[in-house]
Nucleic acid binder design. Structure first.
Lengths: 141, 141
DNA sequence: ATTATTCCGATTGATATACTCAGATTTAAG
DNA sequence: CTTAAATCTGAGTATATCAATCGGAATAAT
């Protein structure tokens, strides 16, 4: 049940972007250095995030990345789904609800995984980048 | 965030044992056949489950497995922890709470993983084998 | 032009996953 | 006492995933 580094790094990177929210885009090496991540590995993650509209990129000198939407409009769940795929503990409760475990007698354990999935989604969909920024600034929580 | 087959098969196997609860132990090939699992693979999972006291085994002919405790005293969480390790999405919120991500400034994202972990634990620790049996028998739910 | 940057694809080493298999041990039944 | 049915143990294996690294192409500011 471990999250891979993709998801963790992605969230860290976007939190960093949200904290540095300003007019100029932020270069990848800046993000990588501040969060202690490998720049070339982070590079791989930005592609999908850009395609999903979570970040915008500016190429060339003085280029970099900025958030694609307001921090209050981007949830941790949005980021994780892009980088990790569906937030489901098993295939039988993935996006495509129509997979079956093969066993005819109706899978007994499926209801468990369904509840696990829903509880994970409840958490990650309720936390926005704006929330994390507020938490990081003051401990007014 | 996928569960491995170990956890899934383990829960299925113990549900099967709970359903067949009787005086005589149930042989592995019976469990495997009923749930459509590989017998030799399942064999590997029973070792840890036995050591954890979740199942009892009887060797020799007419041997097999039975539950180590009452179905109402075994939760899905118990099984998953034995077979999958700590139910934590990241190392920084594992059993040993003292791991640190290295970043001095206090990890911003840690609170997220903590909440994810807790919500998963809430679900799996609240579901017992007895619950799943009841659900499997009547749909009185 | 030069330099800073994103973009893209290939490659790699390590680890984990999901098994299978061979044989040792234990025990009930004939 | 022999045989067959089971669990137990450890090794082996093919495939996939993870966590990167690297080289170079495209783009744009200075």
């Amino acid at each position: 049940m471990r999250l891979s580094t993709k998801g963790r790094y992605g969230v860290k990177a976007l939190v960093e972007l949200a904290l540095q929210q300003q007019d100029a885009p932020v270069a990848l090496h800046t993000i990588a250095k501040r969060q202690g991540l490998s720049e070339s590995y982070l590079e791989q993650l930005m592609g999908p995030l850009r395609k999903a509209g979570l970040v915008r990129s500016v190429r060339g000198a003085q280029g970099g990345y900025s958030l694609g939407r307001d921090p209050s409009e981007i949830t941790v769940g949005d980021i994780l789904r892009v980088l990790e795929g569906p937030l489901a503990p098993t295939d039988c409760v993935g996006e495509a609800e129509f997979e079956h475990c093969g066993r005819a007698e109706g899978c007994i354990t499926r209801s468990v995984w369904l509840r696990v999935r829903d509880s994970i989604e409840d958490v990650v969909d309720s936390i926005t980048l704006a929330d994390l920024c507020a938490e990081a600034r003051g401990e007014k929580d």
